[in-house]
Design a protein around this nucleic acid. Structure first.
Lengths: 340, 340
DNA sequence: TTGTATGCGTTATCAG
DNA sequence: CTGATAACGCATACAA
């Protein structure tokens, strides 16, 4: 037998009694406050506060004939050879999840997560797609009629509610950093271009900033990951030793990790001889004997906004805006563990 | 105005009609099947299957006067100096979450997550605590009367429903591996002993296995993390070069990472000269130029069982058993990305 | 603007 | 073992 636990949670009726109004008014105060007279509204809010009342989300959803649920779905499905790398991004997932949670928690909706992709639209009032890869991936959700918002690399996407990282802008920051440090011979390790939006945008932003400074850029396409980074450095070795290249921008930290390792192995000092700047702000950078700058995606910001946008579009059909968050540069001397 | 989405989900009434029974009977079939006659039960199951019926969890919770929610709370709060290391464990969190989800999903309960610790018991019918650290941490939950299950390092815990990793057993596997490889001079890097259960158990298991083989063990206490691992190796350098120590067990992979790096830096080859075995099966091991064996916590198994245990104890007050899952050794030649 | 009354899908009580 | 029926807490026509 299922045990019953005393739930002293006050209900709408209690609040209504205390506030000397009807339950309908209490409901209105929480759903369409503007439709309630100020005097009564204040009485209700006061009573609710005193009693510690929170609307029961389940009953709410039931009465509304809605599911009352918002889905958070991890879409991160890359090519098979990238699967192993995904483990390094779990921290970003967790951070994003936390951000979404903060927004949904305070609404009348419940956050539901799905990690294995077995979710059907229709079971949810709203959907948040994490780390989508291609338009085909989002299409079924958008056409389902369920309000959907997705993130976070938006290069090739053009429709629906979406929030993302300004990869181009982030790369501009990275290039800017190297320029400020006085570098003139700069190389860039790119990856899966042009298939991957994020890599393409990052490359573009980097090159653009250098062009603005009337500088060229040695672009090298390498496999993504530590091994690719090492290989990239090997290709550049001559120029690095000759001093014609003194800085390297890398498309992500996983690859930057390998690049740094290889540089050190070759006896090239960082940052004295060569400087490297990464992207993603992955914790693995702390495993290197030297600190390098990187670009933080600000995914918490991205998904917090995404969630809020979705929730507000659940109230009124919103517009199909795109929302871009500018990443922030993490300097090698700053402590990544610091409070933001 | 909130849009209404067509939910063609069949309800209890539809199933009841099709099965020619009352709604009460349908409810019983899904909650206490044994209280329904076989003929009718089959009719109901058949109808439910045809219609694709799933009980509405919200209505269920409402009628039951319960919250209908199960909480998954991340308790991982270590000392400040360890905070930075936590980022490496996000993957384990995600894996555990997925396991819990799988179990809860198919029940009439909803899984709710809380990442910032602002959850109050009483808002939930059941609670799953992830990665608890000390008995004081769980005490308020246990005394709240809400069924609670916690994991996953159970060394110092003695009450309540719990599921955990057999750290001792895992360490035995690690030691066994080194013995099988013919090593006789073996060292062990331990960490925060005796405060941390996991470290204590791992040390114990390792030493016990060596004792059984009539071997001693050079035990070294080092800080946890890459730097600590490097320092440990430095302390052992003479013995390593002399060949009196040819293998090192380490309390976790983060520390093992540093140990391996330092060994290689010293020109000591792995596994030819010295062999290292880690613990936790963290993906960062792939960032090393050599593969080392490690011990996988099987947290998916742990938390899957934990969730099932909790759910069943929600039906009937269960016993306060402890559940221990034996980790599995990951050999350096096996691919960690392989399907289990 | 406000209150009354009804229903949302399910479980639990009670009578048969 | 089974069926009718009353909650569960809330939102929303509808009436006032």
């Amino acid at each position: 037998m299922r045990a019953a636990y005393p739930r002293d949670t006050p209900d709408q009726q209690r609040v209504a009694t205390v506030a000397r109004v009807s339950t309908a008014t209490v409901s209105r105060v929480f759903n369409s406050p503007h439709r309630v007279g100020e005097a009564r509204r204040n009485r209700v809010l006061q009573a609710a506060k005193e009693l510690g009342y929170t609307p029961n989300k389940f009953a709410s959803a039931l009465a509304r004939k809605a599911t009352g649920r918002v889905l958070f779905l991890d879409c991160n499905k890359l090519a098979a050879h990238d699967r192993v790398n995904q483990a390094y991004y779990a921290g970003l997932y967790k951070m994003s999840l936390e951000a979404v949670l903060g927004a949904v928690e305070s609404s009348t909706y419940h956050l539901t997560i799905d990690l294995n992709g077995s979710a059907k639209p229709g079971d949810y009032d709203g959907i948040i797609l994490f780390d989508v890869d291609s338009p085909e991936q989002v299409a079924p959700f958008l056409s389902s009629g369920i309000p959907t918002v997705y993130g976070h690399h938006l290069g090739g996407f053009s429709k629906g509610l979406r929030a993302g990282v300004d990869n181009k802008g982030g790369s501009v920051l990275a290039a800017q950093y190297l320029l400020d440090r006085g570098h003139r011979g700069i190389a860039y390790l790119t990856g899966r271009v042009p298939e991957l939006n994020s890599h393409k945008d990052r490359l573009e932003g980097f090159v653009i900033r250098l062009e603005e400074a009337n500088l060229g850029c040695t672009i090298l396409q390498t496999p993504v990951g530590p091994r690719g980074g090492a290989r990239g450095v090997q290709s550049l070795e001559k120029k690095l030793r000759a001093g014609s290249i003194t800085a390297i921008g890398v498309m992500n930290d996983l690859t930057a990790f390998g690049a740094v390792q290889e540089l050190l192995r070759l006896g090239i000092r960082i940052p004295e001889d060569v400087e490297v700047v990464g992207f993603d702000n992955l914790p693995i950078l702390d495993l290197l004997p030297v600190r390098i700058p990187t670009v933080d995606l600000s995914l918490d910001e991205v998904y917090s906004r995404a969630a809020k946008k979705l929730l507000s579009s659940l109230e009124s059909q919103g517009e199909q805006e795109e929302l871009l968050v500018l990443p922030r540069l993490i300097r090698p001397n700053s402590n990544p563990g610091d409070p933001k």
